[in-house]
Design a protein around this nucleic acid. Sequence first.
DNA 1: CGGAATCCGCACGGATACTG
DNA 2: CAGTATCCGTGCGGATTCCG
Lengths: 109, 109
Amino acid sequence: MGKGYTPETAAADVAAALKVLEGRWKLILLFHLFGGQVRRYSELKKRIPGISQKMLAQQLRALEADGLVRRTVYPEVPPRVEYQLTDWGQALCPVLDGLLSWREKRHSQ
Amino acid sequence: MGKGYTPETAAADVAAALKVLEGRWKLILLFHLFGGQVRRYSELKKRIPGISQKMLAQQLRALEADGLVRRTVYPEVPPRVEYQLTDWGQALCPVLDGLLSWREKRHSQ
DNA sequence: CGGAATCCGCACGGATACTG
DNA sequence: CAGTATCCGTGCGGATTCCG
């Protein structure tokens, strides 16, 4: 923790980072895209059981607005839209691994 | 990411780790306790602007139940209760730092 | 001092129907 | 195919009151 941080500002910064992961679907979406995978809307819909069209579109837009996901539209008929992680989105993977390691520590002590 | 992980199980494990941090107050509480600080209930109440007694007690209990916080009751009159992080709770600090570093990366690219 | 109990508003997310 | 629009239920968190 650097200098100049109060508990409130530090907590707010972490909360801002966690905000882009909040909700029931975003982590699932990210894990479907980690590793450079490219997926179509309908592909994600099929692979993620229980997600509604509204939530799929809404959460993908949120991830895109936050800079984790890139959306590519192909002007074809029928329309095709592909989703993939940005470099920054992909950089989240090791951070989440750190979180998993921390979680496993608990059982080992 | 190890083998045997589906996007769903990996996301569920991360979500379980994030669950102990969820809500409006837990991060603030943690940052008030990082570094081995020991705080009384009334002290936390004073230091955290806007938190209600209900939320303070509720979130402290949740953190205690999740093993991040240790609660010590001194049988005195008037009663005194102190809160501090467990080793595992303290171990979360570098993980959150990783999250902050990830966040700062965005502006630098 | 350190809570517990209760009531309540609001935003998140689900279901369904419709569209370029 | 890839969405948008609308309605609605549930649960988180706030305000207030009471208790050992």
